[in-house]
Every structure is written in C-alpha cells, then in structure tokens.
C-alpha cells in the first residue's frame, strides 16, 4: 500500500494541518509504511461481527437538565488568543 503525495496533501487539507513540502514527503513514506502494517486487519474474518466502539455495558446516560454554576465570561475568555469585548475575536469570515 503506497500513498501518493497528492493524497497526503488532501488529508492534510481535511485535517486543517499546514504541512511543509518536506513534511508531505516524510508523511507520504511513513504513512505508507503504517497503512501497509495496519492492512493486515484485512486478513481477519469479521463476517457477522458487530463493531465495538466502547467496552462499557452502559448506553444513553441521561441526567436531568438543571441549570448550574458555569464559568464567567472572563474565565471563559481568559485563555483566548484574541478577545473583543465579551467575544472571541477571529478574522472576518465573510467579505
């Protein structure tokens, strides 16, 4: 299983991960090797096997919807890289 640099570039785009050309080159070879390794799963017969996403015997854990104490605006914004008033500040999304 060999990945092409275009595929790796596309995956980087999907992941919103800016990569240098050297990184694309490195990831193309490393991911190819790892994907070749994980491909061994194809030899396992999984006909009729249900996927297992977690191991707990519990599902749909509900709680009552009660208002409680939450962070203040200042606490919530304390770690923001950029803040404007009571809001997170980001570059313009629309022109």
């Amino acid at each position: 299983m060999t990945l092409k640099p275009e595929e790796v570039r596309w995956v980087a785009h999907l992941a919103r991960l800016e990569c240098t050309e050297e990184e694309i080159k490195l990831f193309t070879s490393q991911l190819s090797e790892i994907v070749a390794y994980v491909n061994q799963l194809q030899e396992v017969n999984t006909d009729g096997v249900e996927p297992l996403s977690h191991c707990l015997p519990i599902s749909n854990v509900f709680r009552s919807d009660e208002p409680g104490v939450s962070l203040t605006v200042d606490e919530a914004l304390a770690n923001a890289p950029a803040r404007k008033g009571d809001f997170y500040s980001v570059p313009a999304v629309l022109d």
Partner: peptide, 21 residues
C-alpha cells in the same frame, strides 16, 4: 491550518493525518 501546523509536533501531526485518512 497554520496554527495547527506550527503548534503541533511531528508525532501528533502524523497521528492526526493517519486518523483523518
């Protein structure tokens, strides 16, 4: 994408890439 490209180290990037793939 630049924040993530500059902020994450190589192994984290590799795993995000594999997981996304």
């Amino acid at each position: 994408s630049r924040t993530r490209g500059e902020g994450f180290g190589p192994e984290v990037k590799r795993r995000i890439m594999l997981g996304t793939y």
